[in-house]
Nucleic acid binder design. Structure first.
Lengths: 180, 180
DNA sequence: CGCGTGATTGAGTATAGTCAACATTTGTGG
DNA sequence: CCACAAATGTTGACTATACTCAATCACGCG
């Protein structure tokens, strides 16, 4: 299983990064950082100096394009999150997050197969969704009772992918899977 | 007064663009568009072909950097919106939006001066904040009663910038004003 | 074991939504 | 310019979703 981290200004998450993601492309060309990164699971981080990255972004079009794609995908995911938080109920939001994590972990659009470790506490899930941990807990229980997921503590399993997907109104398009 | 438009997937806004902004940098290197643009006020739009833009992004580092900065600022604003919608109450959210618009319109961090035309209906404001138009209406009335704003239909005036700013917990840092 | 973190549950509250009526403004054709 | 229609704004009564506070439980670990 990969490495997880979250972008968090204060105590609200605006992104989840997984293995292989760039962590701070957002500040590539901005002078003032407006967020910081919180590690959820331990992992290895490669550090590259800012000027070196900036040079790469132009001198090597292939690399530069990769930076662009990664940045734009992250922005696309951000828009989806915004939509998620702004428009959906707690239940839909949580279902949507579970769908996203499942898909991004398996890198396929039908992560029916196995269970996976949810590397976040309910408190952190709440931060990501703009919900209290108490409510997260209640919603999780409900999703379970409805047979959409199984869980044993942090270990989650998508029990009914189609159902979960439908409930969340999830469409993986925004993840731009084929491009990363 | 400038031109306004909104990025909207379905019926929820994820960004507001103003005069001089790039409209669709987000899709510069992504093949599948995941949102569309809705014009709020009439205005002139310059269209540039995608390949031409892509070439510019690399052949002219100065231009390329400008693209990067614009994109990253938009992402930064997106993160702030996410925080706004996810963590703040309706009142705070609305106050925050008013602050952002006032600042971006005047391009200064103390837009005390004049009133400005709010080019959105209450319905659209609601879309931007994840609120119903009914609630937007009530909150606006409240902000007015508290002396933070004045308004005469679409014409808004910041009556108490410091108060509004404090209520919204607004900090213009995320707009990266000096860089655009 | 005993502590600490995280999970679970209950009771009461508050914020925002829904539905519905009505008022006002804006836009349009005559 | 007027008259009407459509869109937007305003208000009230009621509901529902999610929050708060608080207590209790379960596990992980020294």
């Amino acid at each position: 299983m990969g490495h997880f981290s979250m972008k968090t200004p204060g105590h609200f998450s605006t992104a989840i990064n997984m293995s292989g993601d760039f962590l701070d492309l957002q500040n590539l060309f901005l002078t003032e950082s407006d967020h910081n990164v919180q590690a959820l699971t331990s992992g290895v981080v490669a550090e590259v100096s800012l000027p070196a990255m900036q040079e790469l972004a132009f001198k090597r079009p292939a690399v530069g394009k990769a930076f662009w794609v990664a940045t734009l995908i992250e922005a696309s995911i951000g828009r989806e999150w915004l939509l998620n938080v702004g428009r959906r109920s707690a239940t839909e939001r949580l279902a949507h997050l579970l769908c996203e994590i499942a898909v991004r972990l398996t890198d396929t659009d039908t992560p029916a197969a196995g269970d996976y470790e949810m590397p976040m506490t309910q408190e952190q899930i709440g931060d990501a969704l703009g919900l209290t941990s108490v409510h997260v807990n209640r919603v999780l229980k409900m999703l379970q009772k409805q047979g959409l997921i199984n869980r044993d503590r942090r270990r989650m399993q998508v029990a009914d992918w189609k159902g979960l997907r439908a409930l969340a109104d999830f469409n993986e398009r925004y993840l731009h899977l084929n491009q990363s």
